[in-house]
Nucleic acid binder design. Structure first.
Lengths: 194, 194
DNA sequence: CTCAGAACTGAAACTATTTTCAGGATACGG
DNA sequence: CCGTATCCTGAAAATAGTTTCAGTTCTGAG
């Protein structure tokens, strides 16, 4: 059926982006990766832009789903401290599983492309605002903070910066996570005890 | 003279990069922007890669020069608090002057490209390490901090993340600077008094 | 002035990639 | 089966961009 093939193509797009970024996003590579002909890409998605758009939308959705999942996964009978949940949410960006890494790379590319493309900037802004307000909410639960909005901005921007460090091999995923936790402690949102 | 023309070409490169990123870096655009023929680019810089390399090196040098200037501008008789100098160094990335913005855009692009290009990753890593160790030094001067290395990582990564927010229009330069100062206060490196 | 070498031009050749399209395969209701 | 609508292919055309190069202009020393 066609929808399966579409799906396969979108997944191939994600792998191609993860391997070479938006710059290395070639329809020939996508077709080869998906095991279909190059003509089929146009058939399903119109042109290169349509294909890329579909792939990036999918990345967006996946990220949103993961974020919601994280919030829902909390068992009601064993309440984890909100500071810990905050740390989890923020650190979920880092991790050596291929899917996590591919997602981070795609986001990194999307953010970089958004500088020059208002449409993409709008999409990034919306998704980022959702994420940041979720962080803001957890800050409110974790502690009385004087400037919770600023703290949410600082934490989310920090994660984005650390993501770049990690993806370029300047830090490990673990170091990035430790840095996030250190920042949370600095803001009084995580107790020092391990 | 040739060196003037070279300079003009490099400056044109910076404008082209600021306008369209590394992806939008076209030799035709550079030639048009510099008011020279396309053949001259090859004559002076060999090929596209050589041209791009020269342009990025120039961005690097400019940033380094600006940073040194900032450090040297401190008059010995009126010592500014190290926390303030730290804030200045970190906030110098944000600002609405075209040159500052162009420099930030170039860096943002370079960081994004470094994910897929080991050579660029090495260059970025080196420059980032220098900057971070300067921050680390100022932290040492500003206060006894339990984890100065982690603090330096957090602050520099934060600036990189905020830079992305600013360049995509998600925050203003001023908001980004305020966020940096808030983080510095949280880390006990800047007194609350204004 | 004149010549050599450096700076410079722009069109043509080349390369890489996307888009189109004529047609082949496949699924499926009648 | 048959017809047809959908899915799919891959080669050819179109497009976008870089590199080359034969030739022109400029510059300065002799």
């Amino acid at each position: 059926m066609a929808s399966e093939t579409r799906e396969r193509i979108i997944e191939a797009c994600e792998r191609v982006i993860a391997r070479g970024g938006l710059r290395g996003f070639r329809m020939g590579d996508v077709a080869h990766e998906a095991g279909v002909s190059i003509g089929l890409l146009s058939y399903h998605f119109g042109d290169r832009d349509g294909l890329l758009q579909a792939a990036l939308d999918h990345v967006n959705e996946s990220a949103a789903r993961r974020s919601e999942q994280g919030a829902a996964r909390e068992p009601a009978d064993e309440p984890r401290p909100p500071g810990e949940r905050l740390a989890d949410l923020l650190c979920s960006e880092f991790g050596d599983e291929p899917q996590v890494r591919a997602g981070s790379i795609a986001w990194n590319e999307l953010r970089a492309a958004a500088v020059f493309d208002p449409d993409r900037a709008a999409a990034v802004t919306r998704a980022t605002a959702d994420w940041q307000s979720e962080v803001r909410r957890l800050i409110g639960e974790a502690a009385h903070h004087a400037e919770p909005d600023t703290a949410a901005l600082v934490l989310t921007a920090l994660v984005e910066g650390l993501s770049g460090r990690w993806l370029t091999g300047q830090t490990t995923a673990h170091e990035a996570q430790e840095a996030v936790r250190a920042a949370l402690r600095g803001l009084g949102l995580l107790t020092t005890s391990l």
